[in-house]
Structure formats: structure tokens, C-alpha cells
Computed example of a mutant assay.
Amino acid sequence: MTLLVVEGLNKRFGGVTAARDVSFSLDAGELLAVIGPNGAGKSTTFGMVGGQLRPDSGSVSLLGEPITGLPSRAIWRKGVGRTFQVAQTFVSMTVAENVQMALVSHHGRTRNLLARTRALYRPEALDLLDRVGMRGDADRPVAELAYGDVKRVELAIALAAAPKLLLMDEPTAGMAPRERAALMALTAGIARRDRIGVLFTEHDMDAVFAHADRILVLVRGEIIARGSPDEVRGNARVKQVYLGETGSRAALRSRRETAVP
């Protein structure tokens, strides 16, 4: 089932073209990676899909419904979750309270200022934390967690809205190699089991080639290649402008390694 359709997105900032005729689709349960060097247009593309940026032209549809130019909160309400390069959590709250806050917002109870967050949706929050392997830390302050665990909490927060589509901006940034593999394996398992489409950017080629079903390569705002990991890895232009010999060897190695969740 086609979940997301992006057609002909264009965006300029002054004299700089950040995205030129960016088009792609994403199926439910599929992981699609967007890669490219710094300044390639990855963040701009994410911003246009997620509602942080309005495209100059082009369209974005979710399950056949146009969402082009809608504000990010309206897009979130339609079933689009998001994680960020730097984890967005309330460090003064406990792990469970962070997820409960997301559930409170999802259920539209934020106007009830007298409601005690600790009493709302705790069983649901614990279930979500169990899915990401963090239930045992439910009552710990987020400030005490290792960064890899904070990223798991952020994933649980994103799942609180029962998303159809998950946008992940460099999900493994700042993590150790083993943590990266574990988080991506966890995300892939959840996405395929629950039929959540995942669009993600990533500089770690091991994570990309080990877990993406398809890959888009952006350079200077344009898609220069697309296809399966094997097709992209073998693309001569991609090797020349982005992967190089080092990236190619890393990508090949990642296919031989098993990620441990």
C-alpha cells in the first residue's frame, strides 16, 4: 500500500536551490533512506514533508490526502511522527512521564490544566516503553539515561501518536556503533510489524545499507540515484560524488554484519 507520495518538490532560499524536482513514494512498512553530503537538501526535503517548510511548488500526499503546506502540528495529527537529530525530551521528567505527555497531547487533553499527568495513560505509556526496551527505566529521570536510551525514549514518544509515517532525522547521531545498530534494528522491526512507513536521513552508511529497503541519493538538491541498497552501492556516480571507496567498503561490510537489538 502506497503511504506517501511526493511529487516535484522545489525550494529556493534566495539564490540557492535547496530542492529541485524531488519526487518519490513510500509504502507502508518500508524504510526509505535519504542520503547525501552536507548541503544536499535532505533537511529541506524533510521540512517540506513534515510541515516545517512550505515548498515553492510540488505536492505531498499521505494516503491520497494532500498535506502540502499544512503546519507541522496538523500533519502530526494526521499520523506523522518525528524524531530529531538531537533527541527532544523533557529531561526533568521521568521516562514514563515523557511518554505520558505525548499520549495526553495525542488524546487532546492538554486543555485540562488541572489533570495530573502522572495519573493519565500510564498503562499505555508502559506498553510503549516495553516495545522499545525501556519499561524497566520507566520511573527514572531522563537526565540519568545514557544517550542511546534517550533515543529509545524519543522513539516511544513518536509512537505515542500511533503514526502511519515516521520521519527520522539522523536517528543514530551521537551514538556508539553498537547502539546505532540496536536502534535501527529496533526501528525496522517495529515498522515492518506495525506497517509504519519510515523516511530517514543518516550519515552512518552501515545503518543505511543494513536496514533501508530503498535509498535516495541527493546532491545539490537533486536526486541523482535511487534504488535498492545494492543498486545504489554499485552506482558509479554515487561512488564518485558521495560514497567513495571508503563508503563502498563500509556499505559492503554492513551487509555481512548482524545488528543486535
Rank of each mutant, 00 (worst) to 15 (best):
F46L: 07
A96Q: 02
L53G: 01
L62P: 03
M205E: 01
I67Y: 01
N10A: 10
R54K: 15
S57T: 12
L159Q: 00
R178Q: 12
L32I: 03
A19M: 06
L32T: 00
T68L: 03
V5C: 14
G189Y: 07
L129R: 00
R195H: 09
E222C: 04
V60W: 06
D169T: 03
A156P: 11
D56S: 01
L199P: 05
E97G: 05
G247Y: 11
K42E: 08
A87P: 12
R122E: 10
T172V: 06
L70K: 11
I35M: 01
Q52T: 07
Y147I: 04
M93H: 03
Q240H: 02
S92V: 02
L4C: 09
A143C: 07
V241H: 00
L114V: 12
R118W: 09
L186K: 11
T83Y: 06
I190C: 15
I67A: 07
T45Y: 11
F13R: 05
M101L: 09
V16N: 09
R122N: 15
I223F: 06
T2H: 10
R180C: 09
A225K: 02
L62I: 15
I215M: 14
T201W: 02
D230T: 11
A87N: 03
W76Q: 07
V86D: 12
V260K: 13
R237C: 02
P123A: 04
E7W: 08
G133H: 10
G148T: 08
R131M: 06
L120Q: 05
D56G: 04
T44D: 10
T45I: 13
G136D: 08
R109L: 15
A181E: 03
V5I: 11
G81R: 02
A19W: 00
A188K: 15
L3C: 11
G136W: 13
L252V: 09
S25W: 08
A250G: 07
S61A: 13
I223V: 12
K78Y: 14
H203D: 05
A33F: 01
L32F: 10
R256F: 13
M168L: 14
R152Y: 07
V217A: 04
L120H: 03
P171L: 07
A207C: 11
A115N: 07
K11Q: 02
S25A: 14
A19Y: 00
G41S: 05
S61I: 10
A181N: 10
E65Q: 15
S72Q: 14
L159I: 04
E7Q: 06
T258E: 15
V5G: 06
P229F: 01
E154D: 08
T258W: 07
T187L: 11
L53M: 12
R214P: 06
L113F: 06
V16M: 06
D127E: 11
A182H: 11
A96M: 00
A119Q: 14
R152D: 04
L155F: 03
I75N: 04
L186V: 10
L159K: 13
V104P: 01
V142G: 01
E30Q: 05
V153C: 08
F200H: 03
R140I: 04
H107G: 07
D230A: 14
Q240A: 09
I67W: 02
M1K: 11
L26S: 05
H106Y: 05
V99R: 01
R178V: 10
I157N: 08
R192S: 05
T2N: 09
L103P: 00
V132Y: 13
E65G: 11
L199Q: 12
T83R: 13
